[in-house]
Design a protein around this nucleic acid. Sequence first.
DNA 1: CGGGAGATTGACTGATCTCAACCCGGGTGG
DNA 2: CCACCCGGGTTGAGATCAGTCAATCTCCCG
Lengths: 236, 236
Amino acid sequence: MLRNIGVQYVDLREFISTRTVFRHLNPKELDLLPLDDGTINYKRSDIVYEEGARINGFYCVVKGIIKIYKTGFDGKDQIIRFAKPGDIMGFRSTITGELACTTTKAIEDASLCFVPGDLVKSFVKSNGEFAMDLLQLACNELGESNDLITDIAQKTVRERLAEVLIHLKWTFNLDNENFLQISLTREELANLVGTATESVIRLLSEFKQDRLIELHGRRIKILDEAKLIKIGNMQY
Amino acid sequence: MLRNIGVQYVDLREFISTRTVFRHLNPKELDLLPLDDGTINYKRSDIVYEEGARINGFYCVVKGIIKIYKTGFDGKDQIIRFAKPGDIMGFRSTITGELACTTTKAIEDASLCFVPGDLVKSFVKSNGEFAMDLLQLACNELGESNDLITDIAQKTVRERLAEVLIHLKWTFNLDNENFLQISLTREELANLVGTATESVIRLLSEFKQDRLIELHGRRIKILDEAKLIKIGNMQY
DNA sequence: CGGGAGATTGACTGATCTCAACCCGGGTGG
DNA sequence: CCACCCGGGTTGAGATCAGTCAATCTCCCG
């Protein structure tokens, strides 16, 4: 049951049964999950599935970070969210039976555990606790998506960039030198903010001038979180 | 069980049990719904609940149209979606237990049937079919929200307005004279598109010049759906 | 050393927002 | 009956945010 993923040995069953939406499955149900057999490794920039693909199951992130994005008609990507260890991808398509409406790509080496859709659906019907957890998951995402809609529609690029930096801090934390623990290209940052690469670059320089952040290549150090929150007009 | 809502008499139980997410409840469960007792009438521009309110139950639209929107920090509203007969409002907050993240206001006289959250949750746990339906509902909305994010982030105001007009047609249909069967102020249209009122007005005039639509006050006649779809860069 | 991807900077353009004025129709009070 | 007001709609002018295009730079890699 022990499995080598990257540098650490992790008990996969332990992980799935405590850190994911499968936390309320009973031992019998857990036995049905194809844990090791369903786990697939991806290298940085590997695509897990593409927009338009038929998905029939949950991809549970065990290790790594995956970006989830939609490609607009003009070829520009909009990053919707990131999935990190413990998160689930592909549940929307699995539940609705529609084709995937997003593409998912590893931005660092990753391991995903695939759980077939039929199995998930049977759990939903047999385990009310699990159904509620899944509903909560969907509803949480829905809330975040709705927030994002208002943000993009009403805030300036400057405000949104500040907000994105704060969200990244909250989601991925800082290392002991206050650097964001996620590495994104300027273009990815732009696709997250919903703007042009050049705009992100200019605004990052501004923030650096104003001593809100420090830049070391792709590594971003957060110097003044409070000020960034203010610039981002965040209500938290 | 017959109830006067507006000009028509409708069998409420029949409506709830065929047109809403409660369609897979069994007769026993249906009996638990506070149908007539839970039904409340609203006048145009009445607020059902406000952002920040504690919601604990589903509001099921029986009659009328409700706009669901978020107010940005600068006081401008962003309309997320409309709820029409058969639709549910407030399920996100009910499920997650969070405060409402949207305000909901009747844009025409409406009747809503309130179903307590505890009852809904008990159905989720006891009725797998219902749980799946609810999940599908949430996932469908999630898909639409994600589409909207990409649209707002990448499309021009002109493209978005064209798209909104088409979506309104699909959602509310046209009357026998090809007028949209929903009446919105220019400001509401702007809040839906995510732009300024003046921009909407100017673009509507353009569309009129180009013989894509006709304007009679708030009533909008769709003349050339195909062209609007093209302008909106819609992939359908 | 050449090539390529990503990052940066500058100049220019233009879509869209804001501000302000004005119109129009309906309702209201004197 | 009329003057006034008010909300919503419309139009114009000017300001500006942010996108595009193009040139350059910096690494890193083979």
